[in-house]
């Protein structure tokens, strides 16, 4: 694979990537690839190895085994060559609170070697994109979390990277700000930037072109949202609108034909072999236990259903 700019086919190619810390393996031989211009969602519960994988892909953590190339460059062999061409937005937003919006942009532009007209043009673009025009001289500390997040994204892309890594970019941000943020991500993807995003939010995952699901350091599922729903969902899902108490959950689990049940928002989801066969039985069972005023309906399995399933299968 050539290293010259623009001649790579896939933005990321990972093969058997492994990271061992003393006494345990944080990332355990994962393999996947990310196509150019795609939004790749990297999902997994806390501590599953998402940040560790990103660190290796950004060239700041040396892999213990396997291969990874980003933009056609081997991360272990030439980490320095990747740095100028990728952007990174960390879990903590990494802004300087005591610097103003414009000073933050100036700084990040400066350390990527941007100068004069080029820097000015990029700052203008980023301010426009993030909707921060007119707030240039506010201290970052005084921005609300949603705006901080936009500024952090702006800082991460000030040098026009071909590929951006975003590690839980929407943690702690309200739903409206999250939606706005994703609008920006779509826009970037449309203009050819490849995005690698980790998230806990399943609604965000639905918006990704492709997904990888990592659990305890292992990649346990990989594909488009639709593929994942088809391939990894054996059985069907019914939704029971009932008071979400442990008692109700126990009752649903005990109903005939129910493989698994779990809280899903303000409802309980149950996986059954067949909706047609099992749904009436579940309703009857709950009534017989004295539950009243609930409703049962069949629903399309969501990604969350898929992942609950996947984790239960792995256990």
């Amino acid at each position: 694979m050539s290293k010259t700019n623009g001649s790579y086919e896939k933005s990321i190619v990972v093969d058997g990537l492994t990271k061992k810390f003393v006494g345990f393996t944080a990332v355990d031989g994962i393999s996947f690839d990310v196509r150019r211009g795609e939004i790749f969602g990297f999902l997994g519960p806390n501590g599953s190895g998402k940040s560790t994988t990103i660190r290796m892909l950004c060239g700041i953590l040396e892999p213990s085994g396997g291969n990874a190339s980003v933009l056609g460059i081997d991360v272990a062999a030439h980490p320095e060559e990747i740095k100028q061409r990728i952007g990174y937005m960390s879990q903590k937003f990494s802004l300087y609170d005591d610097l103003t919006v414009i000073e933050n942009l100036d700084f990040y532009g400066g350390i990527y070697g941007l100068k004069n007209d080029h820097l000015a043009g990029r700052k203008d673009f980023v301010l426009e994109m993030a909707g921060l025009k007119g707030r240039e001289h506010e201290l970052a500390a005084n921005l609300s979390t949603g705006w901080k997040q936009r500024l952090a994204l702006g800082c991460a892309i000030i040098h026009e990277p071909e590929m951006v890594f975003l590690d839980e970019p929407t943690g702690g941000v309200d739903p409206v700000s999250r939606r706005n943020f994703w609008e920006m991500l779509y826009h970037m993807a449309e203009t050819g930037t490849t995005l690698f995003v980790t998230t806990h939010y399943m609604d965000e995952a639905e918006h990704c072109h492709r997904l990888g699901f990592i659990y305890q350091g292992k990649m346990i599922a990989l594909g488009t949202p639709d593929q994942l729903k088809q391939q990894h969902m054996r059985g069907e899902v019914i939704e029971i609108a009932i008071d979400t108490s442990q008692e109700a959950l126990r009752a649903v689990v005990g109903a005939p034909g129910v493989d698994e049940a779990y809280f899903y928002g303000a409802t309980i989801h149950a996986k059954v072999g067949s909706v047609k066969r099992d749904m009436p039985a579940v309703g009857k069972h709950l009534k017989s236990l004295g539950f009243k005023g609930f409703s049962v309906q069949s629903v399309q399995p969501s990604l969350e259903d898929v992942f609950v399933n996947l984790i239960q299968d792995t256990r």
Binding site: G59, I60, S90, S94, L95, I111
Partner: peptide, 13 residues
């Protein structure tokens, strides 16, 4: 502490 060091390490500096 702020986590900005990570950004500096990832940058070409």
């Amino acid at each position: 502490e702020r986590g900005t060091l990570e950004n500096l390490i990832i940058s070409p500096i």
